[in-house]
Write a protein that binds this DNA or RNA. Structure first.
Length: 369
DNA sequence: AAATCGGGGTT
DNA sequence: AACCCAGATTT
């Protein structure tokens, strides 16, 4: 079999390359299945460089699964703030409780048990089993898909079910009999450092397995893998308010049935085509019962999945009767609200948009307080 | 099968 | 501004 010979050749070269080129990453310094699990969840659709500081904070604050299970969800979400995909934080917390209860506090080493936990799919289960327990399970992530689709010159669009099955099957076939964890990481590392997405230049001249790579031989590297079309971006405009009073500024908690559920944010609203100055005045009056002219601070961009948000930030001091009117309006709503200082934000679940607004504030802060 | 969920690193 | 990242889950 040609494929089998190819697989053996590929294994040897890849492992050897990895020995010399593996990046020193924090989660590579531990054998604790709990910490490896946490790293894998954080790394879902999230780049290594982004994850590192969060992983370090998390492993320090919740060094054991028991500590995580006993923590409050709010604290976990606060620590996760800025990392995105906040469902992961809820699921990690929920899984920790399930593991304490149902698995004696030990991260399962059975594939089916891992898959039963929220937030763990086929990739993450394989990663935990191979990396933490050195069991022979394949993985298939974005990196591995790119590498395999090139090595085997697969020209079908990747998202189809049949193609996915084929890729999983290949990932399983090329797996060595021992050291699956190291091999899996080597495959991903190759995708991260050498076999880069089209658009970036692939570094085939440094690739340890270019001789086994069909795409390289046929000069198809820049055309593979074939990716599905992406959803069109939707442009959204919104206004956002810094309502300042003596003791700080106002934040609201998002409801449970929307994007970023339960996260704290500045008061604001999506607007249509009207000038944002007018919208700001009107929304302040109608939605927050504040009659006054907000001061335009600046606008910033923020994107959430397919949404490209332009956020116009306004600032207004509230006190006396104006504040009383605002408080009345807030009390009549079911939304939670708080007045906080800037340094209290880090203890509350919040998206990075509000952090961007805070940074915007730096140049003018001395004029505010 | 397609849509949804965050945010930023990189080019 | 586009692409895509150590994907999972819901529709």
């Amino acid at each position: 079999m040609k494929d089998l010979k190819k697989a053996e050749d590929l294994r040897v070269r890849l492992i050897s390359w990895y020995a010399d080129n593996a990046r020193p990453l924090p989660w590579r310094e531990t054998h604790d299945p709990y910490l490896i699990w946490i790293s894998e969840i954080m790394l879902q659709q999230t780049q290594v460089a982004t994850v590192i500081p969060y992983y370090l904070k998390f492993s320090k604050r919740f060094p054991t699964i028991k500590r995580l299970a006993e923590a409050s969800l709010e604290e976990v979400l606060a620590l996760w703030s800025g990392l995105g995909y906040y469902k992961r934080a809820r699921q990690v917390k929920q899984s920790a409780e399930q593991i304490i209860k149902g698995f004696d506090g030990l991260i399962p080493r059975v594939h089916k048990d891992l898959l039963s936990l929220p937030g763990i799919g086929k990739y993450t289960a394989g990663a935990i089993l191979s990396i933490a327990y050195d069991l022979n399970y394949p993985i298939l992530d974005g990196n591995v898909m790119r590498v395999l689709s090139r090595v085997f010159a697969m020209d079908e669009v990747l998202n189809a079910k049949g193609v996915q099955n084929k890729l999983w099957s290949l990932a399983e076939k090329i797996l060595p009999e021992k050291k699956a964890g190291m091999f899996n990481q080597a495959l991903m590392e190759l995708g991260a450092l050498i076999c880069l997405p089209s658009g970036k230049k692939s570094l085939c001249h440094d690739c340890p397995i270019s001789e086994s790579c069909e795409a390289h031989q046929k000069d198809l590297v820049s055309q593979l893998p074939k990716l599905p079309e992406k959803r069109e971006k939707v442009k959204i405009q919104q206004v956002m308010f810094l309502l300042l009073e003596k003791k700080g500024f106002l934040i609201l908690q998002r409801p449970d049935d929307v994007l970023l559920k339960g996260m704290w944010e500045l008061p604001g609203k999506e607007i249509s085509d009207q000038p944002h100055q007018e919208a700001a005045y009107q929304i302040l009056k109608e939605d927050f019962a504040v009659d006054g002219n907000p001061h335009y601070l600046s606008s910033l961009s923020h994107s959430i999945t397919y949404r490209a948000i332009t956020c116009h930030v306004y600032l207004i001091h509230v006190s006396g009767e104006v504040k009383k009117s605002l408080m009345n309006r807030l009390e009549s709503r079911t939304l939670e609200y708080r007045w906080i200082q800037r340094d209290e934000l880090q203890d509350l679940p919040h998206s990075s948009l509000i952090d961007k607004v805070m940074l915007l504030l730096d140049p003018v802060q001395k004029d505010l307080f």
